[in-house]
């Protein structure tokens, strides 16, 4: 008899809970727009927050409500944007793809150090001690805060400076926010010619601290046939819209600070 009572009580409580939950589910039912679910499934789901919303769920809601553009997710590729546009019944206008790039080439063998830093292996902590151990005030410190913050495993520290794999980079911009030295910048994905320096000091001052820094000599500016590179405040900058990848500046640069793949000379544009 005891077992019957036990089964009845447990089963009874279970049944009552079940019925109450079923009633509650009907009572507290909220209509979720199918669009939100579809858009959420099309998003990458990294929850990185690069779109400016709290996560992919919030972004999906905003897209479905028409508050955010269908290609508002900087991480999703063109295909995913198209899919979201299809769900929303519009067309995605594909913006130019950008990637983050470290504007510093001062690896350990080329850039000098002003002191030996033995503290916590953290760029922000290192930067708090006299602006970091690199003599150059605008150099990558190489303690890897950007590596830690990257959700896509796109950054490596190579010989003391951060290098971003542009194939893996999704332009979420987290590293740009994290870097205490602000040496990371967005550049167009298709562009190959980039001045790998952020130092705006005069030529001698740059030369003293780094063998590969831009000294502002203007040789690149004078030699560029397309008016696509300019020196302002002692630092050369490529005009990515005008650059045709002729690689003349890369060849002429006396400190070799202009990055460019010489094998693709004249191929692009």
């Amino acid at each position: 008899m005891v077992i019957v009572k036990a089964v009845a009580v447990t089963g009874g409580i279970g049944a009552v809970c079940g019925v109450l939950l079923a009633i509650a589910a009907k009572l507290f039912h909220i209509d979720v727009d199918q669009k939100i679910i579809d858009v959420r499934n099309a998003l990458p789901g990294a929850n990185c927050g690069a779109c400016g919303y709290a996560g992919c769920d919030a972004m999906a809601e905003a897209i479905a409500a028409g508050k955010a553009p269908v290609n508002g997710c900087p991480v999703a590729n063109a295909q995913a944007h198209e899919k979201i546009a299809e769900i929303m019944g519009t067309t995605a206008e594909e913006g130019e793809k950008k990637v983050a790039h470290v504007l510093c080439l001062g690896c350990d063998s080329l850039a000098s150090k002003k002191h030996e830093y033995r503290g916590v292996k953290d760029c922000k902590a290192a930067a708090a001690v006299q602006g970091g151990d690199k003599s150059c005030d605008k150099g990558c410190l190489g303690y890897g805060n950007c590596v830690a913050v990257c959700d896509f495993d796109a950054i490596d520290i190579v010989d003391g400076i951060a290098v971003i794999d542009k194939e893996k980079c999704t332009a979420c911009g987290k590293c740009i926010e994290e870097c205490p030295k602000a040496v990371i910048e967005f550049v167009p994905y298709k562009n190959n010619v980039i001045v790998g320096c952020s130092n705006r000091d005069f030529g001698k001052a740059v030369k003293d601290v780094c063998k590969i820094g831009c000294i502002g000599c203007k040789i690149c500016e004078k030699n560029c046939p397309y008016d696509a590179i300019h020196v302002t405040n002692n630092l050369a900058k490529v005009d990515y819209d005008k650059c045709t990848h002729c690689m003349i500046c890369v060849e002429k640069c006396p400190t070799k600070v202009i990055e460019g793949d010489l094998t693709i000379k004249d191929q692009a544009v």
Binding site: V9, T10, I13, L21, A24, A25, L27, F28
Partner: peptide
């Protein structure tokens, strides 16, 4: 039926949390 304590409590807590979740959502 005091000896049924554990299983009944688990049942009730699980249902309760579900209910609270639905209630809060709405």
């Amino acid at each position: 039926l005091e000896y049924l304590q554990t299983i009944v409590f688990i049942l009730i807590i699980a249902a309760l949390v579900q209910f609270v979740e639905m209630f809060l959502k709405k």
